[in-house]
Simulated scan of single mutants.
Amino acid sequence: MSTPTPTTDGADEALQEQSAPACVMSFNASDPSGAGGLAGDVSTIAAMGAHALPIVTSIVMRDTAEVFDHHALDADVMVEQARSVLEDVTIAAWKVGFLGSAEGVGAVAEILSDYPDVPLVAYMPNLSWLEEDAQQAYLEAFRELVLPQTEVLVGSHQTLTDFLLPDWDSERPASPRELAVAAGEHGTRFVLVTSVVLPSGKKGSDQFLDNVLASPQGAITGEKFERFDAAFVGAGDTLSAALAALLASGAELHAAVGEALTFLDEALDAGFRPGMGNVVPDRFFWALPPAEEGEDGGATPGDEPAADDPPKGPRHVH
């Protein structure tokens, strides 16, 4: 009978630390459709190999088509959730989504300020469904309290224009750099602008939308997406959560943005419609069984792609 090799507590702790995934704390709403909010954040962060620490900020009443109502949690409840975990777990990145109310923004901002070295990815969703007074109070609080602590602000071109440049009246759309300058005035280092419509003069421009990481000095990197025929819900939460998880795992920003955009594109390409509304990104597209030989999108024997070619496959929504 062999004698087990003794181990020390220190060795056990070192092994656990070595094998543990990076932890990302996400502040977001509970979304019962599973399309976005905390459900989307948790699945995305897990798909990227990190561990999610979900903090509920509000409960949204919605389906896959639209938002009907929401109930913001008391700020003290939000703080207690987060502080309880932060006293126990070391985090490597923040993801901020919808914080429920202006009071919720203030409570979360105070927590963020205690960890200035942890990178923050903030997502600004379309909040047109909120009552006007509540929406304006929320946006003002977000500008003053969250943007100064934000590493990367993520949002669609239209939403970020409305948020950062509300008085923009030019017929020309604001550029990603101009949005980055506006965000930079509040302390944000970078913006990741999605769904940028390309100039109509370019051949085939109407088939693609641009996605650009920019700083006040100019555009840094980005990817063009082919337009989908379907409407999606949860895309912004997916992109921002993926980026936060990659930064938490130690990726450089330039590379992390490219990988997060590729992940989103493939998740949308594999999207599915669970109900009668919009399409939900499939964050676990990579776990789907491979296509059978001879099916659409399957590889042809002897047809080897170049190493730097993008993955090929038809757009599909199942």
Rank of each mutant, 00 (worst) to 15 (best):
D9Q: 14
L15R: 11
E17W: 07
A22W: 01
S26K: 07
N28G: 12
S30Y: 05
P32W: 02
G36V: 04
G37P: 09
L38A: 03
A39I: 02
A39P: 00
A39E: 14
T44I: 10
I45D: 00
A46V: 09
A50M: 02
P54F: 03
T57V: 00
S58C: 13
S58I: 00
M61Y: 06
R62A: 15
D63R: 04
E66N: 09
A72I: 05
L73E: 04
L73K: 00
V79F: 07
A82N: 07
S84H: 13
D88E: 09
T90W: 06
A92F: 05
W94N: 07
L99S: 09
G100L: 05
V108T: 06
V108N: 03
P116V: 13
L120A: 03
V121F: 04
P125F: 01
P125I: 10
E132V: 13
A134T: 11
L139K: 14
E140F: 06
E140L: 13
F142I: 08
L145D: 08
L147R: 02
Q149T: 10
G155H: 07
L160C: 05
T161W: 10
T161C: 09
F163P: 04
L164P: 03
L165C: 10
S170I: 01
E171A: 03
P173H: 01
P176E: 07
A182S: 02
E185T: 07
T188R: 05
R189I: 05
L192M: 05
V193N: 06
T194P: 03
V196R: 11
P199L: 10
P199Q: 11
G201S: 12
K203A: 15
K203R: 13
F208T: 12
V212P: 04
Q217V: 02
I220T: 08
K224Q: 12
K224G: 03
E226C: 11
E226P: 00
D229A: 14
A230F: 06
A231K: 13
F232W: 01
G234T: 00
G236Q: 08
D237Q: 01
S240R: 08
S240D: 01
A242D: 01
A244S: 14
G250S: 02
A251S: 15
L253I: 11
H254I: 11
V257W: 05
G258E: 11
E259N: 11
F263N: 01
D269S: 15
G271D: 05
G275F: 04
G275C: 01
V279S: 03
V280Y: 01
P281L: 06
D282T: 08
F284A: 13
W286F: 15
L288H: 14
P289R: 02
A291K: 15
E295F: 08
G297Y: 00
G297H: 06
T300D: 12
P301G: 10
G302A: 08
P305S: 09
A306S: 10
A307F: 08
H316R: 15
H318S: 14
